[in-house]
């Protein structure tokens, strides 16, 4: 098993390993002060302490990594699920009904270009600090990619599939439920994957400004104390969590959308 695993996956590790070694060498060469450009070995050792409280090198954060991840994760999930619920429902309504489209779409397209982070002042005034403004921001940020992609998926549904369904006696609701939804699912998943990335980015942004815990808070706090090893460990944690969540969505997607595989580039590999 091991040899075939390595044969298959060796390419995945080439670039990361090279970058890490390069970084280690530069950092240890004395070109920059080591505190401002800590080598990966030191980041990893601090990260391990942050996770498990092994040597106290992450000071007050020692052993509190999981707590930080969970606080951030909770905000991401709450905001994200609200965005998915509103985004998909609204997207289907806009894609399906010309009236709803005229009513709502211009507003969405006008709000969309505003960077979600620009809402922070208003979010703090309206919702105070801590969880609420962070969740608001996450919802706002992941809502747009989800709604836009859902609309696209609904609108590009094959007209003949709808005809076939109505030929078999489908009501409007049945067409939405049994034709439009599954047909739009590939696009919806594109929105979900874009949305989860935005959700992580905005949680961290909110935590740097309006929240007193979570990965973003640790990052910003460590910056004040010139603990760049911890700053980098926070960044790596965010990357890892974003990666894992995307992976999870991708796995769900592959299960649900297997029927699509053979009609795309993926099916040729």
């Amino acid at each position: 098993m091991t040899s075939s695993f390595w044969n298959k996956n060796i390419f995945r590790f080439v670039v990361p390993v090279f970058l890490l070694v390069f970084w280690e060498v530069i950092s240890r060469s004395g070109l920059f002060p080591m505190a401002l450009f800590p080598p990966p070995t030191r980041v990893i050792s601090v990260w391990i302490d942050w996770m498990f409280g092994t040597n106290g090198s992450s000071e007050i954060n020692s052993g509190l990594w999981l707590e930080a991840v969970l606080s951030s994760g909770m905000r991401v999930m709450s905001g994200y699920f609200i965005a998915v619920a509103i985004g998909v429902v609204l997207g289907v309504a806009i894609g399906w009904s010309k009236i709803v489209e005229r009513l709502i779409e211009p507003t969405i397209q006008m709000l969309r270009p505003i960077p979600p982070a620009a809402w922070i002042p208003l979010a703090i005034i309206w919702l105070g600090i801590a969880n609420k403004p962070a969740i608001f921001l996450v919802t706002l940020g992941s809502f747009f990619p989800i709604v836009v992609n859902t609309i696209y998926g609904v609108k590009t549904t094959d007209k003949n599939l709808i005809r076939a369904a109505s030929m078999m006696g489908s009501s409007r609701w049945q067409i939405i439920r049994y034709v439009i939804m599954p047909a739009a699912l590939p696009s919806i998943f594109t929105g979900l994957r874009l949305g989860i990335g935005t959700a992580w980015a905005l949680t961290v942004t909110a935590e740097m400004i309006a929240v007193k815990n979570g990965l973003g808070y640790v990052l910003w706090d460590s910056y004040y104390f010139l603990r760049y090893d911890l700053v980098i460990a926070s960044m790596a944690s965010m990357g890892l969590m974003g990666f894992l969540m995307d992976l999870l969505i991708k796995k769900i997607m592959d299960r649900l959308l297997h029927w699509q595989r053979n009609t795309s580039v993926q099916g040729m590999q």
Partner: peptide
């Protein structure tokens, strides 16, 4: 239909 027009899922 001219094309099979089956639900691919």
């Amino acid at each position: 239909f001219q094309q099979p027009t089956l639900m691919p899922w």
